[in-house]
Structure formats: structure tokens, C-alpha cells
Design a binder for these strands. Structure first.
Length: 644
DNA sequence: GTAGGGTTAG
């Protein structure tokens, strides 16, 4: 018979969602003398290990204090750890079960431990578990077999996955789904399609498997076809499409599908939200992002950490670091490493180096261990704020205290740090002494710094290295020719230009995007004429004239010498995509509204001074997110202090 | 009293 207190505890536990709440209930359990009640302690373990994302440490402590855990409790811990940040703990718990438990692992134990091996992509662990399962006669168990298929698939061994699948007695639809997923994992799209044709019965999930496989392979057309053809769709089908579009750069499509999802009355979930938010973040769709924020609050998604992280990233990538900070501060529960790192990166992109470092220290104090991505963000913050010394300290801390092996990206940050500070020869010496061979990106970073500080001699040396590693990169040639042009070395400019023409090198087309009335418009340099571009071109000529007369704006033709004839210089400059986007925004948006642009390349010197000029003459704020950082133009100057 | 396949942010 359950007592009244026991029933009360069980009912409290069934509504428990946060660690804080769980601790309160746990205290009440002690007070009521129910701490040894098997049903209640099992339930508390289940909630902390599985149902609350940041409570696995609590679960582990509970488990340790239990003198003789039963199979159920072992399985719960193995399951929770397999889904945690350190799935290797799950494997350890399984091993401990073999050594210490009175009862042997059952099919549940194997399914959970195999999931850990899959998450670790550790074939060796998976193989050992497979052997153990064979010894116990559990390898042909339907559930264990299916998990084996997906484990081998995750580890990239499709042949093993297929072997297990072929040996299964009567594979059901779930097993079929697992083997199809394994084929997609191994990039065997036609194999996956073939199996899809052979499958005896398909449910909704099979169609979702096909959607996921094709979107991950980047074939959105195929996925779209399947999406329209499938007999019914659920929230996972919709989320898969939205995430797929967002991942592959089809931001407007992601926004459109999300709108359609909400309009159709189907259920949106946290995954479709993170997907559409990611599209907004990449495209800089600030207005749409704000609407999503309201939607999140209204629909009760605000307690989910993945949604909050995506929202904070959206605000910071749209240039609104204050709103990003607000979301960050108000997030419920423990802040994850993703939250901390996103916030640090957000501050870094705006050039708030000191604030980023402060937050980094707060993160350390909170007990969250920074990882390699955190260090990339914080080093980036230092280089973009000119904090040479601090960057140096942090780099030594990473290797010395946190024992994190620097990757080529970390070295790249250091080169950037020296380069931006004008210490070109220090940067060069750093590159040649690096323990890993420098790649083209490293040399390109240095070339950029040489260009900024006009060091022709070093630039030529660096360009030589680049020619060995990546000889046909047009950007490198453009940089070099710009360096010559600024120094007035026309003959050298000509040589580089001729080389580019001979090799038929094409410049990466620059594009810029702007959001007007929650719709994204994109512009490409030298765009063909249509209604939208015509409107932009007309407004642009009007603006340029006014700036020349009232703002003293003089086009800086140095940036275009590489690819066109002299008389066209100014004409081509005026067609840069960011100028078109700004002009379009000024034509369409209400007066006084901040203009927000996202650009795929770095903004050129001419466009930079053009924006400064607009911000003064028109008394208008402009925010440009380029490939490397944010530029906030206000009253004739830029937040980057002409340093980018 | 726990399962297996499909969607999740830096």
C-alpha cells in the first residue's frame, strides 16, 4: 500500500523539470523518511539522469550512495550517461555492472551502452559490447540488434551494420530505418534509395529518415520532393526540412517553411525553432528573429536551453548584443558551454574584447570548463580588440592549464593577433615556428595584415608560400595587387592582373542581404536589372551625388584596380552589393530606422568610407556584418575604428 | 517502473 506521503512525492516528481525543483522534492522525501523507498529513489534517479539535461552529476552521486543498485538503476545511469557530454562514463558504468552487480546486464543495458559507443564513434567499444552481447545470447535480440546496426553505422562501418542486419531474424521497420540511416551515414545515397524501395512496410519515420538523409547530403530538391509526396507529416518532418534549408544556406526557404508550418496549424517544436533561428542568425534577419522571440515566450518554449542558445546566437549575429545578453542572463538552469561560448563570440564580433574576457573569467568561476571552441572565440575577441598581451596569456592558459592541444585555428587566431597589432615579423616568426605546418588560411591571414600595413616585402614572401599551397586563389592575387596599387607600383599591379587573366581566375562574387518587412533581399555585385535592383540603383545614384556634394566623399579606387579598365573603376565600385543593399534599405525603410546588412566577404575600404559618409550626411545608423566582424556606423565613424 | 530508427544551438 502506498502511503499518502509516498503518493504526494510521486506526484510532485512527475511534474519536476529543473534540478532546483528536484532538490526541493528530494529534501521533502528525506523529511518524510522515504529516502529508502525503492520506487521513489528509482524515480529520482531517472529524472536526474535522463529527464533533466544538466543533472547527470547529481544522478551519479545518488547512485554512489546506493549500497546495492538493481538492474533498473544501473540501466538508468548507463542511459543518462550515454546521452551526456561524456558518454565514456556510460561505458565505465557498464563495465562496473559486469564486475559488481549481482544480476548481469540485460537487453536494456546493452541498448544504452551501445548508444554510448555510437555517440563516441568508438568502434572498439562497440565491438567489445557486441562480443559481450553474443556471449549472453542477446545479439539477436531485436532491440539490441537494431542498436548494433546504428552503432556500426555511426562509426562509419556500413558493412558491419549490413552484416548484423542480414543476420536479424525478422527485421521490423525500425531495423530497416536503422540500416537506411547507416547507408546515408556512409554517403551511399543510391544504396539508401535502393533499400527504401525494398522495405516491406513504411511508416512515417521511414520517410523522415529519407528526408534527413537527403538534406544532410545537401540535396534539398530531392528532400522537398519526398516531403511533398509523403502520405503524412509530423513535427519531425517539418523540423528536418527547416534545419536542412538553414544548414545549406537557403535561409529564405527556411523562414518560408517555418511560416507555412505555423500557418498550417501543425505543431512546431524546439528543433524547428532552433532551425529557423539559425537561418535568421546566418542571414541577419533581426525583425523576424524578434517575432520568433515573442513566439517562444508565448508558446512556452522559453525554458528549453537549446532554444535560448539559438535565440542568443541570433541576436548577437544580428548585431544586437544587448538583447543577446538579456537572453543569456535570463536563461533558466545551468548555462551550458554553448551558451557561454556563444555569448563570448557575440561580444567578440562587436569588438568588446574586455567584456568578452570578463565573461570568460566568469565562466571559469562557474565551474564550466572551456573547450577548444571557447578558446577560438576568446582569442578572436583579443585579436579584434587589439589586446595583444591578454591574447598571449589566454593562449598559454589553454595549453598550460587546460591542457588543450592548439589546432590550426588557434594558431590562426594568434597570427591574426600579431598581424592586426602591426607586429608583422613576430607574426611571421610565429608561423614558421608553429608545430603544425601552416596552411593557406594562416598565410592568407598574414597577407591581409601585410596589406593593411603596406609591407610589400613581406607580402611578396608570403604570397610565394601561398602560391605553393593554393596557387589559383583569386583573393590572394587581389590582395597583392591592392598592396602594389596603394604603393603606386603600377607595373607590378599589371603583372598580377595579367597572371589572373591568363589563369582565368574568377573573383568570389560578393553578396549582401537586407531584411525589409521581414523578407530577406539579397544583392550581388553588378546584379542584372529587375524591379528590385532598379530601385536600388536609382536610390544609389541619388545618394552618391549627395555624398559627393555634402559629405566630401571621394571613391577610393584602389580596391578595384585588379579586374577592370580605368574608366570603369568608379562605376564598378558603385555596384558593390553592400551599397545596393543599403540604398534599397534607405528607399524602403522608414526614415531613422537602423539599416542592417549582412555581407559574405569583407567590406572594402571604399564601401567602408561610403557608409561612414552616409551615417553623417543622412544622420542614419548602419550596421554591417561582414565576414570577419560587425561594423556599426554612426555620426561619420565606425565601431571598428577603421581596424578590420 | 527503462528500450531500438528520424529533427537540436557555439
Amino acid at each position: 500500500m502506498n502511503s499518502a506521503a509516498e503518493n504526494l512525492c510521486l506526484s510532485l516528481l512527475s511534474n519536476c523539470r529543473t534540478l532546483r525543483n528536484l532538490k526541493q522534492i528530494h529534501a521533502f522525501v528525506y523529511k518524510s523518511g522515504l529516502e529508502t523507498d525503492p520506487l521513489i529513489s528509482a524515480k529520482i534517479l531517472l529524472i536526474s539522469a535522463v529527464q533533466i539535461s544538466d543533472a547527470i552529476d547529481y544522478a551519479r552521486r545518488l547512485f554512489i550512495h546506493n549500497p546495492n543498485p538493481d538492474v533498473f538503476m544501473y540501466n538508468t545511469l548507463i542511459r543518462g550517461e550515454s546521452e551526456s557530454d561524456s558518454p565514456n562514463n556510460s561505458v565505465s558504468s557498464f563495465a562496473r555492472m559486469l564486475r559488481e552487480s549481482y544480476s548481469p546486464p540485460d537487453s536494456f543495458s546493452f541498448a544504452f551502452a551501445l548508444k554510448a559507443a555510437a555517440n563516441l564513434r568508438c568502434l572498439k567499444t562497440g565491438f567489445q559490447l557486441h562480443c559481450q552481447a553474443m556471449v549472453r545470447g542477446l545479439d539477436t535480440h531485436l532491440f539490441v540488434g537494431t542498436t548494433l546496426v546504428s552503432m556500426y553505422g555511426e562509426c562509419g562501418f556500413v558493412v558491419f551494420a549490413r552484416k548484423v542486419f542480414d543476420e536479424m531474424n525478422e527485421p521490423n521497420v525500425v531495423a530497416w530505418n536503422a540500416i537506411i540511416t547507416a547507408y546515408f551515414r556512409g554517403n551511399d545515397l543510391s544504396g539508401a534509395d535502393r533499400l527504401f524501395g525494398l522495405i516491406p512496410c513504411r511508416d512515417l519515420t521511414t520517410w523522415n529518415v529519407m528526408l534527413a538523409g537527403h538534406t544532410k547530403a545537401g540535396d534539398l530538391e530531392r528532400a522537398k520532393g519526398l516531403f511533398l509526396r509523403m502520405p503524412s507529416r509530423d513535427d519531425v518532418s517539418w523540423s528536418t526540412m527547416i534545419v536542412g534549408f538553414a544548414r545549406n544556406g537557403y535561409f529564405d526557404e527556411a523562414l518560408r517553411v517555418f511560416r507555412e508550418l505555423v500557418g498550417s496549424g501543425n505543431r512546431s517544436n524546439e528543433v524547428s525553432l532552433t532551425g529557423v533561428l539559425s537561418a535568421c542568425a546566418q542571414a541577419g534577419a533581426f525583425e523576424f528573429g524578434k517575432i520568433l522571440h515573442a513566439f517562444i515566450e508565448k508558446m512556452g518554449f522559453a525554458w528549453i536551453s537549446s532554444v535560448n542558445n539559438a535565440l542568443l546566437d541570433t541576436y548577437s549575429k544580428c548585431g544586437n548584443v544587448l538583447m543577446a545578453r538579456l537572453v543569456f542572463e535570463r536563461m533558466p538552469g545551468k548555462k551550458s558551454i554553448v551558451s557561454w561560448t556563444s555569448m563570448i563570440a557575440g561580444l567578440a564580433m562587436q569588438g568588446y574584447g574586455e567584456e568578452a574576457i570578463k565573461l570568460f573569467h566568469k565562466m571559469e568561476e562557474s565551474g564550466t570548463r572551456p573547450d577548444e571552441i571557447t578558446f577560438i572565440s576568446i582569442l578572436y575577441a583579443c585579436s579584434h580588440a587589439g589586446l595583444l598581451e591578454r591574447g598571449h596569456e589566454i593562449f598559454s592558459k589553454m595549453t598550460g592549464i587546460y591542457n588543450i592541444e592548439p589546432t590550426i585555428e588557434h594558431y590562426g587566431c594568434m597570427v591574426d593577433l600579431y598581424g592586426r597589432a602591426g607586429q608583422l615579423h613576430k607574426a611571421y616568426n610565429f608561423v614558421v615556428q608553429m608545430p603544425v605546418p601552416p596552411n593557406a588560411i594562416i598565410w592568407r591571414t598574414l597577407l591581409g595584415a601585410c596589406s593593411f600595413f603596406g609591407d610589400i616585402e613581406l607580402a611578396e614572401q608570403v604570397k610565394k608560400r601561398l602560391s605553393e599551397l593554393d596557387p589559383d586563389n583569386s583573393g590572394d592575387h587581389v590582395l597583392l595587387s591592392n598592396i602594389y596599387a596603394v604603393a603606386g607600383k603600377w607595373k607590378d599591379v599589371d603583372t598580377v592582373r595579367r597572371l589572373m587573366a591568363e589563369k582565368n581566375m574568377k573573383k568570389t562574387p560578393g553578396w549582401s542581404m537586407i531584411e525589409v518587412d521581414k523578407v530577406m533581399y539579397s544583392f550581388v555585385a553588378g546584379d542584372k536589372l529587375n524591379d528590385i535592383t532598379e530601385e536600388a540603383y536609382n536610390k544609389l545614384s541619388e545618394i552618391t551625388l549627395k555624398l559627393k556634394v555634402e559629405g566630401g566623399y571621394v571613391p577610393e579606387v584602389g580596391s578595384v584596380l585588379h579586374d577592370i579598365e580605368e574608366e570603369e573603376k568608379e562605376d564598378t565600385l558603385s555596384k558593390h552589393s553592400e551599397k545596393l543593399a543599403v540604398a534599397f534599405g534607405m528607399a524602403r525603410l522608414c526614415k531613422g530606422r537602423t539599416i542592417r546588412i549582412v555581407k559574405n566577404l569583407r567590406v572594402c575600404k571604399d564601401c567602408h568610407s561610403f557608409m561612414k559618409s552616409i551615417s553623417k550626411v543622412y544622420e542614419l545608423d548602419i550596421v554591417v556584418r561582414d565576414r570577419s566582424r560587425f561594423h556599426s556606423f554612426k555620426e561619420g565613424s565606425c565601431s571598428c575604428r577603421d581596424y578590420w
